[in-house]
């Protein structure tokens, strides 16, 4: 008996379709990856160079794009010490390794990814909770060294545990957070009111 199935219901047709579609999509993804990569390298169009920790960073509404964008301002060296590109990279990298080693991402979110038990850290450098730019750096370092003492839960009982972070380590974490706040995240988080500076 002849095969009664129409062409679109045949096994062979769908096998070919599966191969062609999968191959095509994989090629498209590889092409897009090559296109995206230069933009997300440090110093690319979307991600700041590590030396951004020497600058003042803002997050302002762009009336053309209709969203907030990071704005890099004048000199504002972190902890009053201007760092070379290599020093800045080393400091941010050290901060990121501490963030990984203390498993911060299983309570907090970074760029919105992680766990939801503690606040998002994407723009934490710019958070109004630090009061003023003058007090911010020392407040962040004190907080990271002894979170149960310096943390604020705004009416919640949730606290950050003491993770044994030294002053030197805390400074590196702050560098990482400052650098992260300058990534152009396409407007996430929206409507973020920054610290007054």
């Amino acid at each position: 008996m002849a095969n009664p199935d129409p062409w679109w219901a045949r096994e062979k047709f769908w096998r070919t379709a599966a191969i062609v579609i999968t191959g095509g999509m994989a090629v498209a993804l590889i092409f897009l990856t090559f296109d995206t990569y230069p933009a997300i390298e440090a110093g690319g169009s979307k991600v700041p160079p590590y030396t951004v920790i020497n600058k003042r960073i803002g997050y302002q509404y762009d009336s053309d794009l209709k969203r907030q964008v990071p704005v890099i301002g004048g000199e504002a060296p972190l902890f009053g010490e201007k760092r070379s590109p290599a020093e800045a990279r080393a400091m941010v990298s050290k901060g990121k390794k501490i963030v990984q080693g203390r498993n911060c991402m299983d309570c907090h979110t970074l760029l919105g990814n992680g766990a939801y038990y503690a606040p998002d850290l994407t723009k934490s450098w710019l958070d109004p909770a630090w009061g003023s730019p003058a007090a911010r750096e020392s407040m962040m370092v004190s907080f990271l060294q002894d979170p149960p003492k310096y943390g604020r839960g705004y009416g919640s009982d949730r606290r950050m545990p003491d993770l044994g972070i030294s002053e030197q380590e805390a400074r590196s974490v702050v560098a990482f957070l400052k650098w992260m706040s300058a990534i152009d995240t396409n407007g996430f988080p929206a409507n973020f009111p920054t610290i007054r500076q």
Partner: peptide
Amino acid sequence: ILGLGHHYFWIGTP
């Protein structure tokens, strides 16, 4: 495969 892009909204990607 390209649905992967829904994770590339807010991480600094174009």
